[in-house]
């Protein structure tokens, strides 16, 4: 199963991931990223990959678990 992980030391809550994969990511009122779910289905893989590539702080990763 593929999962997405967030390095919260790198993340600054810019939110590009939320716009590309809103089922996975949401930035809260305080500007912190919430990971709504981690497990990625085959149909969701492309949008999560776009979110990973779109992250300006390289805080997101897809891992096999």
């Amino acid at each position: 199963m593929k999962c997405v992980t967030v390095d919260f030391d790198k993340c600054t809550g810019l939110g590009i991931c939320e716009s590309l994969a809103p089922d996975f990511f949401e930035v809260n009122d305080d500007g912190e990223l919430l990971l709504l779910k981690a497990e990625i289905s085959d149909t969701e893989l492309q949008e999560v990959e776009e979110a990973v590539n779109g992250c300006p702080t390289e805080a997101l990763k897809i891992v096999d678990q």
Partner: peptide
């Protein structure tokens, strides 16, 4: 401005 939880919801709508 300091609306981090709002902005991307509008980006999705514009898309």
């Amino acid at each position: 401005v300091n609306g981090q939880t709002e902005i991307m919801k509008y980006r999705v709508q514009i898309m």
